[in-house]
Design a protein around this nucleic acid. Structure first.
Lengths: 209, 209
DNA sequence: GCAAATTAATGATTTATTCAAG
DNA sequence: CTTGAATAAATCATTAATTTGC
């Protein structure tokens, strides 16, 4: 796309070297899901970054362009390796992590009819169920699903799981939580919030006493 | 998609009616976390099912497609009812959800300099994320075989092996586990859960006493 | 009890989105 | 920007559950 600005007077074209704080900000934005900010957002981001060193809109644009591209490439590689592995015609165990065929757990409590004497393998050795997560699904994938939401608690951006929140475990004592509208967030008798907090909303945490 | 097999000559379209054993197998696979088996797995599943009655690959494909779809719909309905109900207090919600400009989450462990008082904000969850372009990684990519499933326990995303869970070994004491619906998760006399936890669901762990 | 009539479930199709390769 | 593949959402259509009247 277009190149521009912030380097009209420079005789030797040197390239932008982002400061660690700037990288932090950029990564945070990218990881928050905004992987391709529109023009006006790019400007806002650039203004944020300028707190830590001079930078131009084009640098920001290029950064996101490269970040997307490299992220996609990494993802392709991961998926390729996932697709390749499950073809163990000749199990080449030169790789320490041997291929394990998919195993289905059939609930042992269920009674399968007369045909059950046939070879439906209840192949669930408790061994496999706990060993495998080396490859298949890594936590980075899960991260993109909405396992967590972000809310403000007393003005602090906080990540919480989408499900019920254990107030004691999270805040270490007896607290009440109020939505910024003033509505109390209900908790049940175990101190768990009855419903999930709402992404992006502000809450206030106050001691119960 | 395409239609196939098992029907070309019939004037009245009849449909596959899965046997109870087949449903059991399908449900077990789905609940084990494989919610979207790739083609080759679909074939293997079909072969399993054929022990109990004739069935085609397409039937298996349709079953998982419908199962995913209806599972999601149920989930949406539950969450909708959770969102609607708990507003007995009459707050002036004339504006149900005010517009919030995009804000970005900066990792709380990072200290951003004096300029941080500027509008560095939040936005992290990769789902609501953003308007058109979000990242290429969506939940459908998770359909590869996983040896673990992820559930929420007390709001914390937790990976557990498929299959029976040893409550003592996992939590180190006498606890009861409840599904977020309030239903207790049954354990046998040895403290193992009778059936697998459900991928993506929320549970409460409470001391037994 | 038993079927016809009605309703609820669910298999199969169609339509709309999304993503990324070209 | 266009396009093809994948798949989610919505819909259609048939089967099973059930109600109902006798």
């Amino acid at each position: 796309m277009e190149a521009e600005e912030t380097r009209g007077s420079e005789p030797v074209r040197s390239r932008w070297t982002p400061k660690p704080e700037q990288i932090l900000i950029l990564e945070s934005i990218f990881n928050s899901g905004m992987v391709n900010p529109p023009k006006d957002e790019t400007v806002r981001i650039r203004m944020l970054l300028e707190k830590f060193g001079s930078v131009g809109d084009a640098n920001v644009f290029y950064w996101f362009q490269n970040r997307r591209s490299r992220s996609r490439r990494r993802q392709r590689q991961i998926q390729a390796s996932l697709r390749d592995q499950p073809q163990p015609h000749h199990i080449d165990n030169s790789i320490p992590c041997a291929y394990n065929p998919p195993i289905y757990l059939i609930s042992s409590s269920a009674v399968i009819g007369p045909g059950s004497s046939s070879s439906i393998g209840v192949e669930a050795d408790g061994f496999l169920s706990f060993t495998g997560h080396h490859n298949s699904i890594d936590s980075s994938n899960l991260h993109y699903q909405s396992w967590v939401i972000t809310v403000f608690i007393n003005g602090v951006a906080t990540e919480v799981g989408r499900g019920p929140v254990d107030m004691k475990a999270m805040f270490g004592g007896d607290y009440l939580l109020f939505h910024s509208s003033g509505v109390a967030v209900e908790a049940n008798e175990h101190g768990f919030l009855v419903q999930s907090l709402q992404h992006g909303e502000s809450y206030f945490l106050v001691p119960r006493h």
